[in-house]
Amino acid sequence: MDVLYFAWVRERIGLPKERVETRAATVSELVAELSAREERYALAFSDLTALRVALDQELSDFDAPLEGVREVAFFPPMTGG
């Protein structure tokens, strides 16, 4: 699946998008997998209350299943307007 990062999440991880092969069943499992990879991921995901997640461009939550999902995006709370 494609994993996208925006705003300071993108800056901390150091890239806007990457292809991830995973068997993670939920968003939380994917976060744990990524965090175990490298310190920069662990740092970006250290406080999930400061993060939002979208699955295939729909706002979702960290318990949501990943089956069939093609695009996961992580970002801070939005500041539009």
Binding site: F6, A7, A54, F75, P76, M78, G80, G81
Partner: peptide, 14 residues
């Protein structure tokens, strides 16, 4: 519309 755009449209300001 304004209230929802503020917190539900994916924009981030730097």
């Amino acid at each position: 519309l304004m209230d929802y755009l503020k917190s539900r449209a994916p924009f981030w300001k730097k």
